[in-house]
Amino acid sequence: MSTHSTSPVSYPRADVDPPSGSLFPHKHLLGIWNLDPTAIKFLLDTAEKYVGQNRQAKKTTPTCAGLTQINLFFENSTRTLMSFEIAGKRLGMDTISMSTGSSSIKKGETLLDTAATLNAMHPDVLVMRHADSGAVKLLAEKMDCAVINAGDGRSEHPTQALLDALTIRRRKGQIHGQTIVISGDIAHSRVARSNIYLLNAMGARVRLVAPPTLLPKDVDRLGVEVFHRMDEGLKDADVVMMLRLQQERMKGAFLPSLREYYQFWGLTRRKLAAAKNDVLVMHPGPMNRGVEIASDVADDIDMSAIEEQVEMGVAVRMACLDVLTRSLRGEALS
């Protein structure tokens, strides 16, 4: 079923010097799919520095002072929006956040008109979330500044994948060679897609576990192993990433009930017994306790990295803002 081939003697590609000499040869961060392992490692290494800064009493530095960051969220979000806002402020940027429901854009202005308007205000970084796949890329085509994708439709959520990777790297030492399970609503998840691309690029062994109705067609062609049963998928896993289950999935005949979903695919201590003893449990939040994850698993500080993920989120977003504004600030990327 799988075409995966992570042999135990393979070498991390992230350690190879990039042919271009630039560690991050991109203007925007629209997704993970077009990042090479060197660029991912560079972002993670940069983020690592900010973890320390964020734990100090004085958290703000003037790294990006004078630059303007606009957070434009066409979909409701609290944690991601706050995380980006804090990240910008800690780098000394002027951050402005605009959060509108996904419906307001349909009322009048098209996305490209919005882009033109914002562009005229000369921001230096635009962070954007939108309910439609590809919307952030479309906007980026019309913007002069760097654009960061904070989640578009079912397509990508690159900073989430980066913060997950940083968490795994800090807890496990490396991503290369780890067996990582992603479980839940893969079909509708941008987090799953970004994580699949990132973890594959960094040499992890990626498994998906979900009922057939929540797996998109031909997903096995993305270089993952696909399982339907939790006990098979979790066998000897190093990391388990649970995804949030949207309650409206019951309506589309994807699932019969939350109760049944929890019975077969909810992460419980009993199911986790199949994984390695030091398994790491992750969740991008917000969690549905008792639906995709049992409370005692989520709250077990030895096993669960869920709060640490939130902490890493700020560091990773600071790294992205820092790296994408470096050429603007006259700093080298090599």
């Binding site: 799919w33 796949s133 590809g134 397509s155 990508e156 941008r190 998109p216 067609k217 993305l222």
Partner: peptide, 15 residues
């Protein structure tokens, strides 16, 4: 079209 491309791009498919 419901297939690999739609899955990658995160688009809803028509089988």
């Amino acid at each position: 079209h419901e297939g690999e491309t739609a899955t990658r791009l995160g688009l809803a498919g028509i089988p």
